[in-house]
Each structure stands twice: as structure tokens, then as C-alpha cells.
């Protein structure tokens, strides 16, 4: 549970909420970056936007809006 550990640590400095917020933001960006890689792989494997959306737990529109540009650039979607 390293990931949870990190999230707790990131949010645990009560004296400076800014520190926790910045840490959370950096984690989110990192996780967004990794999401891109996974979504692109799923698309490469022929997954539909609907399937990807379900796996991510968001609506199809959201995943489409977030990821379509990159896929189009690669000549898909």
C-alpha cells in the first residue's frame, strides 16, 4: 500500500496545507501521465472509449475529451 502511504503523507502536514496541496497536485499529474499511457495502450488493443470509460469509472464523454487529441494525432479515433 505504498500509494496510500504516499497520499496520507502528502496530506498530513497540518501546519502548511499548501505543502499537502502541492504534493497532491503533483501526484495527480503523475497519475494523469500514466493514465495517458494506459489509455493509449487500450486504444491500441482495440478497446472502445466506452470500455475505457467504464474501467476508469468516468463517462465516455469525459474520457473522450481528455484523450481523443492524442489518439487522433496518432491516426486513430
Amino acid at each position: 500500500m505504498v500509494a496510500v502511504d504516499i497520499l496520507v503523507r502528502a496530506a498530513s502536514n497540518a501546519d502548511d496545507p499548501g505543502e499537502g496541496l502541492r504534493a497532491i497536485a503533483a501526484l495527480k499529474r503523475l497519475s494523469d501521465d500514466l493514465e495517458v499511457l494506459h489509455v493509449e495502450r487500450a486504444r491500441d488493443l482495440g478497446w472502445t472509449w466506452q470500455q475505457i470509460a467504464e474501467a476508469l469509472g468516468v463517462t465516455r464523454q469525459t474520457v473522450h475529451r481528455k484523450h481523443q487529441t492524442g489518439a487522433t494525432r496518432k491516426g486513430k479515433g
Partner: peptide
């Protein structure tokens, strides 16, 4: 971001 993430132990 790198610095922050590393300070978190990543």
C-alpha cells in the same frame, strides 16, 4: 514535480 514526488518517497 520531480522534487515533490521524490520528497514523498516516490
Amino acid at each position: 514535480d520531480d522534487d515533490l514526488l521524490m520528497s514523498l518517497g516516490i
